[in-house]
Nucleic acid binder design. Sequence first.
DNA 1: CGGAGTAAAAGGCACTT
DNA 2: AAGTGACTTTTACTCCG
Length: 338
Amino acid sequence: MIEVDKNGEEEKKVYRATTKCPECDSPLIRQDYERGEIVCDSCGLVIEENLMDQGAEWRAFDYEQMVKRARTGAPMTYMIHDKGLSTFIDWRDANVQGKSASNIQRLRKWQNRVRVSSSSERSLIFAISEIDRMGSALGLSKDVREAAALMYRKAMEKDLIRGRSVEGLATAILYAVCRQKGIPRTLEEVGSVSRVKQKEIGRTYRFLSRELDFRLQPSSPSEFVSRFCSRLNLKEDVRAKAIEIVNQAEQQELTVGKGPISIAAAAIYIAARLCGDTRTQKEVAAATGVTEVTIRNRYKDIVEALGIELPQLQPSSTTASNLTSSSSPLSSEKELSG
DNA sequence: CGGAGTAAAAGGCACTT
DNA sequence: AAGTGACTTTTACTCCG
């Protein structure tokens, strides 16, 4: 939207407040100030990027200049096995001048042979379709799937595919890309849409990270919080509180060596109780894929170290229809800061 | 039922023969 | 490449209100 100010001299862009992700319709929109992006926590779609500069750096004053200066053509995609860039040779046996040329037939033959016939190319087609299938089953945005397809190409160039299952590679790559993009999926989730067992996904992932040398530090628990919260039908305040708890736990180094998912689960459990919207350990365990015992252990650590005082549990657990917040939501703020 | 807690088994990771 | 060791998580269980 363009808004013209009183003098009519300056134009400024006004960003409409996006409330839902255009791709997956999830309300988990987050502004990532460090990266200058607005991203969807659920599918990882980058809704707005480079918030300052949207347009091209050049200007054109007439049509001729525009054609000259535009550098883009048809969009390139990694999802088509030849990136959509392959050359097709026309069926007529004629060159540009219209004269018949005998070598064109030979050219066309080779072209078609090279384009799809090598076995690696065929496995790439399969891998990309698998990445696409699993990616959409996990609700991942297109750019995540694109990045996965790109990484598969890189793996192919380094000859890492030979002798390994295409399916396993594709799954591990998808898992890796999710982590890279800061929207990690658990091994359990990825495994559930793949025909490969979790164990092999993990093993292949480690192999890839060694060979392709992407330095990924372990994902932060906060990257899981949003998805788990929505799974538990928890509201925004709980999500914010849980992330706050995670951040403080990280500062106090309570998270090193622990599984990030465990920390996220514990933080959510604590946050839900603090906000008066309690979930049982069983529910949290089911939503996060960790055990109740683990939630207990982690959450006890956190509560102790951060000096959080949890409100007592109400025995009226059966369909607590009264959502009257037991204590003011702000009171927990002080407890956390100490 | 929901939570607290425990011991032992299992699993993953960084190391070493 | 199997072994080791410190570690977290899971399994299975008991106890409490």
